[in-house]
Design a protein around this nucleic acid. Structure first.
Lengths: 142, 142
DNA sequence: CTGCATCCCACGAGATACTG
DNA sequence: CAGTATCTCGTGGGATGCAG
């Protein structure tokens, strides 16, 4: 797929149904703001593997706090990406699963993860290179 | 396009097994941390349209400050996603362009933007729905 | 087990001023 | 024009404790 100088794919704003902000980045921010935080993506990835209970998520995502897990899942529910089901048992039991929309987002995220895996070495390399170039108060690069 | 498993859509749920990358979330974080901040994505999108000078970027991205533009472009350069070219003229002139790797990332970002446009209405709807449900001590929404 | 509230700190990011 | 340096502030997010 040639993407060379022609931007990517849908740079051209659809004339009718879209183009609220004159600029190109209409609703991108909306999604990116969700994906931007530290945990949302990880929760989505985990839930893409199947239904999970609260504690299961917590254990599956090392480092997340209850607070953050609660907030994250709540936001995802609010956005219609995750469905929460609570059983009025004792002790209480709640499980979370992706909605169809959530699953389609998960696909995107996974594509990104794929890309990430494919390029992370190149990025690390470039970074090291750049760092070295900036860091030479003395000379003799090696 | 990718290397390994694509599409998480198949809700594989190996019993007590982990997903694509063992247990950790590979380098997703690495990429997401970049995409997470407020401006990186917008800069990438803008640069996906072609070579841009510093001021051009600044004007093209309403709301960004010089500081943030400098930091963002610098990070992108460091990661090998953007190439910076400075001409020792007076006044100084610098331009930025995506590297091949940067362009491939731009494709991903654009796919995400695409998805976003496709689903933002559904998300807004779900959000309103959820909000209403939480906010109504009384019922009969008349 | 789930979830919410509070305190608190670190960091992203805006505004402004200055250099080359 | 391009970039750096400071100061400040809002907020994301960790730790802890309480409640259903």
């Amino acid at each position: 797929m040639s993407v060379a100088n022609t931007a990517v794919s849908s740079q051209v704003g659809p004339p009718a149904s879209n183009g609220p902000c004159g600029d190109d980045h209409c609703g991108i921010r909306d999604v990116l703001d969700r994906l931007g935080d530290r945990w949302t993506v990880l929760v989505i990835v985990e839930l893409s593997k199947g239904v999970r209970r609260f504690r299961e998520l917590e254990r599956a995502i090392p480092g997340i706090s209850q607070r953050m897990l609660t907030l994250t899942t709540k936001r995802l529910c609010r956005d219609g990406l995750v469905q929460r089901t609570a059983y009025p048992t004792i002790p209480p039991q709640v499980d979370y699963r992706l909605t169809p929309m959530g699953r389609s987002l998960a696909e995107m995220v996974n594509a990104l993860a794929d890309w990430s895996r494919d390029h992370m070495d190149a990025m690390a390399d470039a970074r090291a290179d750049w760092d070295a170039e900036q860091e030479v108060p003395q000379h003799s690069p090696r």
